[in-house]
């Protein structure tokens, strides 16, 4: 019974990550405010990182798998025993750095958004577009005069 249910539940987790990716992409493209775009972008990157970790997961029959830490390192058989029950450490190591760098890049985007608001008085992409065109029109008039 549980051999059938567990793969289904793990598939639910996988599909949930993919659906979160899709919703976050909708947020990035369709919402006009830059702040909302940043929120959606963090959700997007987190979902991608989660997919990477999920790829490293494995099913061990009868128990949950162990984290990739050799607890019994004093005995020579310790690593071999762990290899029977552990998950893949490589995706975790790659995601670890990606999360911290993602935070630094998000801080940069936050700072740029603040600067946009300081200069144009809005963070809505639609309004910014209008301001851009309006400024161009004034310049053209100036040239004519």
């Amino acid at each position: 019974m549980s051999e059938l249910i567990i793969p289904y539940l793990l598939t639910v987790v996988f599909v949930s990550f993919v659906i979160n990716l899709v919703i976050a992409l909708y947020g990035i493209f369709a919402r006009p405010t830059l702040v909302k775009k940043i929120i959606a972008l963090t959700i997007f990157s987190d979902s991608l990182n989660s997919l990477a970790i999920f790829v490293g997961y494995r099913v061990v029959s009868g128990r949950v798998p162990a984290p990739p830490v050799v607890v019994n390192y004093t005995s020579p058989q310790g690593p071999a025993q762990l290899a029977k029950v552990t998950v893949d450490p490589l995706p975790q190591a790659l995601v670890l750095t990606a999360i911290v760098i993602g935070l630094a890049v998000t801080l940069f985007m936050v700072k740029v958004t603040m600067q946009v608001h300081r200069i144009y008085g809005t963070t809505s992409v639609r309004k910014l577009e209008r301001i851009e065109h309006g400024n161009k029109g004034e310049e053209d008039e100036g040239v004519v005069e």
Binding site: Y8, V59, V70, Y73, P79, L82
Partner: peptide, 28 residues
């Protein structure tokens, strides 16, 4: 997906060779 309608279920039950090497060699 679970019934096989879209593709294989993305869950493994054995470790990859690269991961096995890392686990066996990290403290050896």
């Amino acid at each position: 997906m679970f019934l096989g309608g879209i593709g294989p279920v993305p869950v493994r039950s054995e470790l990859r060779t690269l991961a096995l090497n890392y686990i066996l060699l990290t403290y050896n």
